[in-house]
Write a protein that binds this DNA or RNA. Sequence first.
DNA 1: ATGAATAATGTAATAATATAACATTTACTT
DNA 2: AAGTAAATGTTATATTATTACATTATTCAT
Lengths: 136, 136
Amino acid sequence: MLQDPNIDSSLTKNQSLVLESLNDARGPLSAYSILDKLRNKGFKAPLQVYRALDKLTEFGFVHRLESLNSFIACKHASCDDSAATAFVICDSCEVVQEMSDISISNFMAVLANKASVKPIKSNIELHGICNDCEKK
Amino acid sequence: MLQDPNIDSSLTKNQSLVLESLNDARGPLSAYSILDKLRNKGFKAPLQVYRALDKLTEFGFVHRLESLNSFIACKHASCDDSAATAFVICDSCEVVQEMSDISISNFMAVLANKASVKPIKSNIELHGICNDCEKK
DNA sequence: ATGAATAATGTAATAATATAACATTTACTT
DNA sequence: AAGTAAATGTTATATTATTACATTATTCAT
Ligand SMILES: [Zn+2]
Ligand SMILES: [Zn+2]
Ligand SMILES: [Zn+2]
Ligand SMILES: [Zn+2]
């Protein structure tokens, strides 16, 4: 084999296929729509997708959008554990912006402190109408 | 009838029953666990619960926890539309704290502005381990 | 009061999302 | 090569949510 077809050689075949699907998509995908896209690559059962998504999420390559029951490839070079991320979702065109800056992490740290909770994972999703859709 | 049994007389019977279930619960409930609690009050189908939850959410009496696919009664006198709310969830004991102050609203307004999006609804959920569970 | 319009409900069927269980294969370590 | 851990294949099932359509209750103008 001349070249590793995986984007990241540490990924397994199923993980690579799922990540490619998400990278190719212009928006978030449900697990079952990923399954449908990968049926011609041999995928037959939802668990193949969910297992790959679990790992990809663990690695930080994929995020789950809780309010949409769907998944999206990380748009950042690396969303390490310390960096909290927020998603801004247009309810009209379904475009998702992934925002990740220190002010988000700081805000969540303050919130955790106020609530006397040791933070594990934060989930911030803002639904609205994007500029382009608003103009129409 | 001497007295209206509803907490809020504007609520219908099904809405009141669902809200009472959530008020009685010590944590968030799934729609199906609400259904089970209300079978002895005549509930037979999930739609009875989901329809009541839709209205209660619209009125601001109930919030949906997206990351848990579950619902919780609002702990504030009134969570009006302008006040963003954040939920802090202990992954060990499942206690949920509802936080609502102006800094949360301000933070989401800044986020919306950065993303050039007109905000509709925000969802902030922080998972962690609460003080009590941490000590154990 | 009466009838039209609106809102809420009842009920059955089905769709959409996610996991459990167990056998098999592959990759890594020694 | 043998042993271990990780990943995969496959079937069945659990959980969450909605569609569709008939019925009943409430509201409001006449
Ligand atoms: Zn990311
Ligand atoms: Zn848009
Ligand atoms: Zn509230
Ligand atoms: Zn706790």
